[in-house]
């Protein structure tokens, strides 16, 4: 018995050690964001800033039009996320639940699209946006990503173990298919919806190339563009910057969102556990 307890103690210890390792870079970023660019170069590195400096954070926020960028990023990323999550759930459910012509080939096609590397799609996507007359619009940023093969795949996979008798029971009660999906299936899909939502939101949140190709006017700029102007890769540019401050500003809205999302994740998990 003692042996078992020791083993589980060791396991618990390892879990916490792993958690600490995972968390350390986050702490390191938070602390370093308040260091001056010069202090970052100090050797040996120190954990705490010498003097808590917010100059660079303030500079980024006030001088670089970050308010508007943040707004655009939040709007585009949220819209894409909502569209992706709901359309993926809907499509995956119908493909699981019903039989129709071309079901299997269509499904394989959707899954196969996830294997296409996105950078090559930039040029053809630009041509399509051009034909549609969508240059410099929100729909140019949103539409190509409104649905995602991976999302359909994720949902389809999740639905493999779905409690089918619930649906049958509702059908016998004469509930319409749309309502079954809306009121019975969708609530039970909360957990994969949240997971997909997080991945989708993140993908959009950090996307740099497409926004600048499809909508490059200052009114349409998004956060990654603002941050990337501080990139050390820029040729012959002497911009002063603290990469941690930039990283903190990029991560901040997500950290806030995380506090909201975490409840939903736990809830979603608990819900699937009930079946």
């Amino acid at each position: 018995m003692d042996h078992v307890t020791n083993q589980s103690r060791l396991a618990t210890g390892l879990i916490w050690m792993g958690a600490a390792i995972m968390f350390f870079p986050v702490v390191w970023m938070l602390l370093s964001a308040f260091k001056s660019p010069q202090e970052l170069l100090d050797y040996p590195p120190r954990l705490l800033p010498d003097r808590w400096s917010t100059e660079f954070l303030v500079y980024i926020w006030t001088e670089r039009n970050f308010g508007r960028m943040m707004l655009n990023s939040v709007f585009v990323s949220s819209t894409v996320t909502l569209l992706t999550v709901f359309s993926s759930a809907y499509i995956a459910y119908v493909f699981r639940e019903f039989q129709f012509r071309f079901r299997i080939p269509l499904l394989y096609l959707v899954i196969a699209t996830t294997m296409i590397p996105l950078p090559v799609l930039v040029l053809p996507h630009f041509q399509i946006v051009l034909w549609l007359g969508w240059l410099n619009t929100y729909q140019a940023l949103i539409m190509p990503y409104a649905l995602w093969g991976f999302g359909v795949f994720l949902m389809y996979q999740f639905l493999a173990g779905f409690p089918h008798d619930l649906i049958e029971a509702a059908r016998l009660d004469g509930v319409s298919e749309r309502q079954i999906f809306q009121h019975i299936v969708l609530p039970l899909m909360k957990s994969p919806c949240v997971a997909l939502g997080i991945i989708t939101f993140l993908h959009q949140w950090e996307s740099l190339l497409w926004p600048l190709v499809a909508a490059n006017s200052p009114e349409m700029q998004m956060l990654p563009a603002g941050l990337a102007t501080f990139s050390g890769d820029a040729v012959e540019s002497a911009d002063l910057f603290n990469p941690y401050s930039a990283a903190l500003i990029a991560a901040f809205p997500l950290l806030i969102a995380f506090l909201i999302f975490q409840r939903m994740i736990v809830k979603g998990i608990a819900m699937t556990g009930m079946k």
């Binding site: 958690a19 995972m22 870079p25 997080i198 950090e206 941050l227 991560a251 997500l254």
Partner: peptide, 16 residues
């Protein structure tokens, strides 16, 4: 702690 890195934009995380 385990979920946190998932929420970091990859560019910001890689900078760190």
């Amino acid at each position: 702690a385990y979920f946190m890195p998932t929420l970091f934009s990859i560019v910001a995380a890689a900078v760190v």
